[in-house]
Design a protein around this nucleic acid. Structure first.
Lengths: 336, 336
DNA sequence: CAGGGTATTGACAGCGCTGTCAAAGATGGG
DNA sequence: CCCATCTTTGACAGCGCTGTCAATACCCTG
């Protein structure tokens, strides 16, 4: 009744368990006849190797952990999808975990993953303190994705947050906007701080003063962003343009503008929004490129895992920074 | 250098490995002093139990596999997010796998998961033949999600595909539409066939003849749906309304209608589309409720896993069918 | 046909953990 | 103060698998 093991297959095929192991793993020399007998037994008994036993032996399993803010968020969902696809091809299974941006949760989730002796970890940092990782991972290869965890010696794959934001804001300033709202997510995240610095630097470069009243850091959810947008528009000297730090916030800003009938307000979202091109005006966005981010991260992680397995001495930590592109669709090009 | 084991902790605390096991698992009686000594050693050595060893012993790991069409699709992403959240709370780790709707891939992925001796499986069926599951799962609890796998004796959590579609079409017929296009996904999926039957039954109930020329089964991607929409509109006697079987197809139909400036066409999407309420006209949808679907599926799976672990005899297979709601936002209520 | 290799196969330990059972220590009634 | 009872702790096997090393079978050369 229980699942077949190497012993069952060995008995069925009239060989030793070691030979079964050899055939199943396919590497070592085995006579064709023996191989056939074993394969027949494998098929007859529906033998499927127990990866737990394998992992126990080898000390690490062919699994990779992926920790993101939220699995439902389209940006992270796109990342997870690419990661799964690439890793399955490479013979790994993917364990997922969500942090909901809670630093404490990140740690719990990572430690839960280490129980499984994952071979590698892709982490979108949620915590500001990653010193626990050295002890928790104990040498397991780690690649930080999208955000810099500010852990010395750590591989990171991220995007040009600062430059893309600066370019977007510079365009709005060039179009004549002077009061551009910054609808920010959480300033605990380095990415958002980078985007904010891009915002500030664009103003500085244009010699336009910044009004701190137009900066909000509370809009990590659509509803909050909608509220922030309404509040900003209710100011005595309201903004004529909106820069949304995150597509989730952008959805709120879009909704608020839509409800108020404000099709005159310029707007740019950091990160694409589904169907944004069909809105009126069509949404100008900075394409966040989750797929490329994920591909680069997986490639780097696979390399690190190979190095780790072969005992090869790891090269210097990599900092891959992908360039971003502004997709001008209308809303960002409106003049005041 | 290597990771600490029970032996290391036992040595450090001056007790036997069994006592370490007892303290770590917290159930059996241990003197407070002993417990403290062991806990101190656990902390000092950063001991984290090896779940592979545990699983090898017990024969099954505290992991659950989730197999969906695509991890990037918002509908499945929402499901996976809820599943992860609930299962982590229950002490499980989640393994994900995508099928991309390829039946052969489903089998491969499921078998890959069984290597890990998962404790349960949530499966969105992609294959039409699930006879392999009996052998592959070998008693592992399984809950089919969203689609009926047509496997006798299997638990299923799905939605009222037929009724919701019929209601939507009935509304359009009542509004005076006589030519309603069916922009279908793949007719290999039972859900889509159910939705199609709902479509047909609504016509039959209204005594309106169906024109097979208005039925498309090739629109599983936005581009294909956009092409199908354009082709339908180019017919001599074009449809005045569109029923999209799937939000991915709906995105294409919306795009095609938008590009042609056809704000006069009625349209209903099966499954919600992000920002659909901000389009012009706002999109009428059948809310597919991925969160409720996932919650029901996880609850059922947890119950089955408990029954399975305690050797309790499983009750009859459950067929949970969630009712759906039509969200009228304008596009579905347009008259011809 | 013997000797020395090569190709193929097998016996066995041990990865980290917990269940079983037994031993040792603590407690208390007679 | 002794023995029965309960509590706490420990020794050991074994979960399924592969690495190590040894044994056997086979082949070729001289």
């Amino acid at each position: 009744m229980s699942r077949a093991t190497v012993y069952d297959v060995a008995r069925e095929a009239g060989v030793s368990i070691k030979t079964v192991s050899r055939v199943v793993n396919g590497s070592e020399a085995v006579t064709p006849q023996t191989r056939d007998r074993v394969m027949a037994a494998v098929t007859a008994l529906k033998y499927v190797p127990n990866s737990n036993a394998l992992s126990l032996k080898s000390g690490s399993s062919r699994t990779v952990g992926v920790v993101v803010d939220s699995l439902a968020d389209p940006f992270f969902a796109a990342i997870v999808a690419v990661v799964e696809s690439k890793l399955v091809t490479a013979g790994y299974t993917v364990l997922v975990a969500a942090t909901n941006r809670q630093g404490a949760r990140e740690r719990e989730q990572v430690i839960a993953l280490t129980r499984h002796r994952i071979a590698g970890l892709l982490l979108v940092p949620a915590s500001s303190d990653h010193t626990y990782l050295a002890d928790a991972l104990h040498g397991i290869p780690l690649v930080m994705v999208d955000r810099d965890g500010e852990l010395p010696g750590c591989d990171v794959v991220r995007v040009q947050d600062h430059d893309a934001a600066q370019e977007a804001i510079a365009g709005m300033l060039a179009a004549g906007h002077r009061r551009i709202a910054f609808v920010g997510d959480s300033n605990a995240l380095p990415t958002n701080r980078d985007r904010h610095r891009g915002y500030l630097d664009a103003f500085a470069a244009a010699g336009v003063p910044v009004d701190p009243e137009l900066e909000r850091w509370d809009s990590d959810q659509p509803d909050a962003a909608a509220g922030a947008t309404r509040a900003l528009l209710a100011l005595p000297d309201p903004p004529t343009a909106f820069f949304c730090c995150h597509p989730r916030g952008a959805a709120g800003t879009i909704r608020a503008l839509h409800e108020l009938g404000r099709t005159d307000c310029a707007m740019i979202s950091f990160g694409d929004v589904q169907l944004g091109d069909l809105l009126d005006p069509a949404l100008t966005v900075i394409d966040h490129r989750p797929e490329e981010l994920a591909e680069a991260a997986v490639a780097l992680l696979l390399r690190r895992m190979t190095e780790s397995a072969t005992g090869e001495v790891g090269r210097d930590p990599e900092q891959i920074v992908l360039p971003l592109q502004l997709i001008r669709r209308g809303s960002g090009e409106l003049t005041p």
